[in-house]
Simulated scan of single mutants.
Amino acid sequence: MRSLRIDIVSDVVCPWCIIGYKSLQAALKLLSNEIQAQIHWHPFELNPTMPQGGENLRDHLTRKYGTTREASIEARNKLTQLGAEVGFDFNFFEEMRIYNTRKAHQMLMWANQHHKQNELELALFEAYFCHEKPIDNESVLIQIAVDIGLDKAQCVQVLSDESWAKAVANTEQQWLQAGIHAVPAIIIEQKHLISGAQTTENLVNTLRSIAHKAISTH
């Protein structure tokens, strides 16, 4: 059994990030007799200057990328199909909004200290993509955290403490300086970079190859 450290740089409003993770999860399940993974999530904000309340997702994509309505519909259909293939149910809707995720990342960084980071990450993806939750809203974030067993009073403190916001910003800056400019970015053993959402088959082959090389060099 080979132990691998897997770092994932991601944002909770990035559909490709949850697709990529679900593919990774499936790959690790197939390799459960060969590899044991320690997963660590790291912050990346797609829209760090987004104001409270967010922006209509379709309007946002038009403004940022020039995406047409037809292209938006096609993209949502494709994402929904890819999500279904890896076991994630996207619920795109007409008035869907995109949000600032700084506070969500503060929570995730804190949850790591309580061994609840992976659970919170998945709960945030589901809240946003499946249940139409405004994940820049503190009450919503606190409820999500409490639902997975985190302490409410500590949640409130983390969300209001500027040092947590600075810690997120500093971590993001470190990843940018390391050359990570798009997500998901999956880093295996702190040296093998996998960019974008990969298929489960590709991930199985890559992980197996890295694990075997690691064993042969020991």
Rank of each mutant, 00 (worst) to 15 (best):
R2T: 13
D7P: 05
V9A: 04
D11S: 04
I18C: 10
I19K: 09
L28T: 06
K29M: 10
A37G: 10
A37H: 11
A37F: 11
H40T: 06
L46W: 07
P51Y: 09
Q52L: 13
G53Y: 12
N56I: 09
H60E: 07
H60G: 07
K64Q: 13
G66T: 07
T67N: 12
E70T: 11
A71V: 14
K78L: 14
K78W: 05
L79R: 05
Q81G: 00
F90I: 11
N91E: 03
F93G: 03
R97Q: 12
R97S: 11
Y99M: 05
K103Y: 00
K103H: 09
H105V: 00
L108S: 06
M109G: 12
L120V: 03
E121Y: 04
A123P: 03
E126L: 06
E126Q: 13
N137I: 03
I144E: 04
V146A: 05
L150G: 08
V158S: 03
L159W: 02
E162F: 01
E162H: 09
T171S: 09
Q177Y: 01
A178T: 07
H181Y: 08
A182T: 14
A182S: 15
V183D: 01
V183E: 07
P184G: 12
L193E: 06
Q198F: 03
V204P: 15
A214I: 00
